[in-house]
């Protein structure tokens, strides 16, 4: 369960989030939509603890824990996962090493035993197969030379390996072809259950045909200006944000 109350945040001294109130109960998937520059990625960074995205007020509780007081790696260990809008390339860090290091860090934090290289490879191959990813991507540098869509799949692979309790997917659908979109949606749907919740940030209703959200929120000007059921996404698709702005 994620509870955000009156969250305000600044980037570069400029207020971006102006009082976000949002509750994502355990087991639910919520979508966030909103115009470019409205603060969606900022919200995802504030929740995952990126430097430079400082909360100036309000709170964010995750299963009762004060997220904003935690280091990024502690948030990850607590089960928060961010699929980046722009995944970072790490030249010189092998993807397999990266994935195994991350998985073992999370396992250590949970008090589970670490996986050796063989155990890891077996698991990674299994998960990659489900995402129609080529094994060869384990050998390359993290995201280095990956196409846009491959980077997004690599994010979902990380989610599938790390098994978070809360996944924040920041435009994971953009740049994906139609088949990849289904594969990624299947990957998210496979995780759905009573112990998994997600915040799905997207511009397109189409993704929400595959990942059907419990709630849809509209973020504009640093606030949630409207919330509703899955139909709200269809309404936005038809009418754009102008109508909401006028109503708000």
């Amino acid at each position: 369960m994620l509870e955000i109350k009156g969250l305000t945040a600044e980037v570069d001294g400029k207020p971006i989030l102006k009082g976000i109130d949002l509750v994502v109960p355990q087991g639910e998937v919520h979508a966030i939509m909103g115009p470019n520059g409205s603060g969606k990625s900022t919200l995802s960074y504030v929740l995952s603890g990126r430097d430079g995205y400082e909360a100036t007020g309000g709170e964010a509780l995750f299963h009762g824990q004060d997220l904003l007081a935690m280091e990024p790696e502690e948030r990850a260990a607590a089960g928060v996962f961010l699929a980046f809008q722009y995944p970072v390339e790490l030249p010189g860090v092998g993807n397999a090493t990266f994935l195994r290091t991350a998985l073992n860090a999370i396992r250590r934090a949970k008090g589970e035993s670490e996986l050796d290289a063989m155990q890891f490879l077996k698991l990674a191959r299994e998960r990659m197969k489900a995402l129609s990813m080529n094994d060869e991507m384990l050998k390359r540098g993290v995201n280095v030379g990956f196409s846009g869509g491959e980077k997004k799949r690599n994010e979902i692979l990380q989610m599938a390996l790390l098994q978070p309790k809360l996944a924040i997917l920041d435009e994971t659908d953009s740049g994906l072809d139609i088949d990849a979109l289904k594969i990624v949606a299947d990957g998210v749907n496979a995780m759905r259950g009573p112990n998994f919740s997600a915040l799905v940030i997207t511009h397109y209703q189409r993704l929400l045909d595959y990942i059907v959200p419990d709630r849809v929120h509209v973020l504009m000007g640093g606030r949630i200006v409207r919330s509703g059921g899955p139909d709200l996404a269809k309404e936005l698709e038809a009418q754009g944000y102008g109508a909401i702005q006028a109503a708000a």
């Binding site: 995952s48 603890g49 990126r50 430097d51 280091e71 990024p72 790696e73 948030r75 990850a76 260990a77 996962f81 961010l82 980046f84 995944p87 970072v88 790490l90 860090v93 090493t97 990266f98 290091t101 991350a102 860090a105 999370i106 934090a109 990380q158 790390l162």
Partner: peptide, 19 residues
């Protein structure tokens, strides 16, 4: 890069060492 690694649960010292 450092944030990316930390967001995956890698402790900061280990993340720096990897980079």
């Amino acid at each position: 890069s450092l944030f990316y690694l930390r967001s995956r649960g890698v402790p900061v010292d280990q993340a720096r060492s990897m980079l």
